[in-house]
Nucleic acid binder design. Structure first.
Lengths: 257, 257
DNA sequence: TACACTGTTTCATAGGATGAAAGCTAGTTC
DNA sequence: GAACTAGCTTTCATCCTATGAAACAGTGTA
């Protein structure tokens, strides 16, 4: 997933990025020894690079400690990046509308590697939460939005996405079933997720397309299997597809659906 | 502000970071020509680096365009950085408490260069907004939190912070007045901002100290000059100082105040 | 068709990034 | 308190990688 065709003259750049990327939800704090081992750099090199990152505010050493964490400059740029995604501004009212009319949670997500990233979220039942899920990622193959995004991604689905890791007993894990599902998604114009990510969670997603017809994001509604029963899916699929179409239109898409 | 003592063997790293940092609220989109000029790189170099950044998801070219914007990977890391700052988790209940008891907006901020960064925010009058200010920055010298943070920062206030740019007629602009103010802040243990950032906006801030006694963040309440009148300042200062102290304690600080 | 402009790729070169090794520092053991 | 250990920091000669000039390729404009 990382180097498809190495760009020459960029080793240092690659290395800094891999240092930054080492920080994750599971591992937000690293010491020099382990971090340099993790990304395969000599300690001297890692140290030199981290020193710059620290001085520039991209990483931070909690006072007293020599460990590294992501720093404030990362927050600044991250928030800016979030604001820059204009799908977000356009989609927000539709998310609100979906949450209001369906009573379920509504999500806007995009693809990052093999995962989907929550860009925006509006809770159902009118309670406007404070976006606690924004920034979260889920494995794409176990979500409705992920199916939608991968169904239209060029090439992305032609080769195994480093295995289809099961999240529940319902997660699609066979490659054949997966390609069939994507075909079906393309045909129907929406995707479902029936307890494939988490037991008791069901969702329905539709694609958002930009000016060029590229599927860049996906809209979904999801909720507890108790309320969001199977018989409601056609109704929800219709609502989500329509909402997603309106967003696509506002982004300049002039397509068939 | 950028290179105090250049670290040798890091030119490429510095350059990537300056490319990333070029993206700002005012200028979230760049084309190659202007961006390379802005950061003083040859187009070839800028192009090479941006190609890597793009392939790694740190920047993005909105489909069709050749312009650059910050990408999803930046969001991922930014959100992670935000979660990593543990002051935030500890301070949240106190922010809520301050907002509840004073009725004004409560903020948690930290220092980034010569600006303060809003890490967390709770609106007054019990209405829990969705953190629209989180990620915003303000010039440190024109805010109460900035005064608090700079008052305790080592060396930071010993030399002109690249000029004290006036935001209103009340902004401190003379270096002498500035150092006097900081002394006063250190003495009193809190800082005020009386329409120095924006006409009609008044705030009061106190320092949060970590285990090592370092002032790493600042707590403040602020609001309209109509409601937040001068006679309420002593009362608010007391409340903010106490709240900040409780946060400091929970971070392991065992100091005098 | 020529022109102007931005973006992309190539390639020889030199100057910068590299990692081994030595030097630190703080903590632990005997 | 001396010897040891483990992690962090700095140095420096060497070689390889990042560099930018220049050529090339697109795209729109006169």
């Amino acid at each position: 997933m990382t180097p498809p065709q190495p760009i020459p003259g960029t080793r240092a750049v690659q290395r800094v990025l891999s240092l930054l990327r080492a920080f994750s939800e599971e591992r937000p704090t690293w010491n020099l020894t382990e971090l340099s081992a993790e990304v395969g750099l000599s300690m001297a090199t890692a140290h030199r690079m981290l020193s710059v990152l620290e001085r520039e505010g991209f990483v931070v050493r909690p006072s007293g400690s020599t460990d590294f964490q992501l720093g404030p400059e990362m927050i600044v740029l991250g928030v800016l990046a979030l604001k820059t995604v204009d799908v977000r501004a356009v989609a927000r009212p539709e998310l609100q509308f979906l949450a209001d009319t369906t009573g379920e949670d509504a999500y806007l997500e995009s693809l990052v590697g093999t995962e989907v990233l929550v860009l925006e979220e509006v809770r159902g039942r009118g309670l406007l939460g404070l976006g606690t899920e924004v920034g979260t990622r889920w494995p794409a193959h176990a979500t409705a939005t992920g199916k939608v995004l991968l169904a239209d991604a060029e090439g992305a689905m032609t080769e195994p996405v480093e295995g289809l890791h099961p999240m529940t007993a319902h997660t699609i894990t066979s490659w054949e079933k997966w390609t069939d599902t994507l075909s079906e998604v393309r045909e129907k114009g929406y995707a479902t997720n029936i307890e494939e990510l988490e037991y008791g969670f069901i969702s329905v997603a539709a694609p958002i397309r930009d000016r060029e017809g590229q599927t860049t994001a996906s809209l979904s509604v999801g909720g507890s299997a108790h309320r969001l029963t199977m018989d409601r899916i056609p109704e929800l699929a219709k609502a989500v597809k329509e909402a997603a179409s309106r967003v696509s239109e506002r982004l300049g898409y002039r397509g068939s659906d």
